[in-house]
Design a protein around this nucleic acid. Structure first.
Lengths: 133, 133
DNA sequence: TTACATAGTGTTATATTATAACAATTCTAA
DNA sequence: TTAGAATTGTTATAATATAACACTATGTAA
């Protein structure tokens, strides 16, 4: 049997950073996170980026590529980030994770004509949210 | 009548940078572009980024957000970058713009339950291309 | 043809985002 | 209890992107 490590438990830095992202109403950038956790003893960028990388890998957070920012996963259906979709308000910067089984199924089964088999997708919609439009 | 400027013609720097991207088989990063156009008198990052911004705005190129890199538009249907989709090989870095009217229609008409009206989307699929799988 | 607005250029400096490299420590499974 | 894996702490630096300012070129309207 191959060695297994404890799952579902986050390390100290990972927990600190996840908590911060999870309670933020908006996506957080790495250096904003750094600034906010310095009081907890996390002093340098690599500490933040390492935690972010791990949290992304295990699906606890997602990176919003168009903003270089991170949000907590709100969607139990996204299967460790294999299928992510977001709506992004171009005015107030609000980001909302889309949980739509039909959309997810449609895209997961989409096959490129040129013979590529997809493992993962990320979709970002842009517009104006209810409040801003 | 409102003032109109010439359309469809690129400025000198825009043309140089578009030509470079257009003949590249792979997405190009801003500083790779800078390095390659220095012999043509483009010396500093802002010159590159300004041309890239404009080329993106008029739909001649697209930014691959997950790679911070740029490709020429191969899809006359994308309507000035309102609806972009790419397949990205995780092994060889190849990027291919997807032109699929059905997919585009499906996503363009997708409406978020929470009342957001979308103006634009970007979709990035990841996997292994024919050659790499 | 002038004059005006808009777009583009060149330049220096700096801001922002992300990683390399290395030493030390802690956790986990056997 | 011990070896491997994961995590931490740290310094330095790489990579990506923009601010700000002076200047030039181009298209349009009068």
């Amino acid at each position: 049997m191959t060695r297994m490590h404890k799952e579902n438990t986050l390390s100290k830095n990972q927990q600190i950073i996840f908590d911060l992202i999870d309670k933020s109403p908006e996506p957080l950038k790495a250096y904003t996170i750094l600034f906010n956790v310095q009081k907890k003893g996390i002093n340098a960028p690599p500490q933040v980026y390492r935690a972010l990388d791990k949290l992304v890998a295990i699906g606890k957070i997602h990176k919003i590529e168009s903003k270089n920012a991170f949000v907590a996963c709100k969607n139990s259906d996204c299967e460790i980030s294999k299928a992510t979709a977001f709506s992004i308000c171009e005015s107030c910067e609000m980001v909302d994770e889309i949980s739509d089984a039909k959309l997810s199924r449609y895209l997961s089964s989409f096959n490129h004509k040129k013979g590529m088999k997809f493992k993962r997708f990320n979709l970002e919609f842009f517009g104006l949210c209810k409040k801003c439009k």
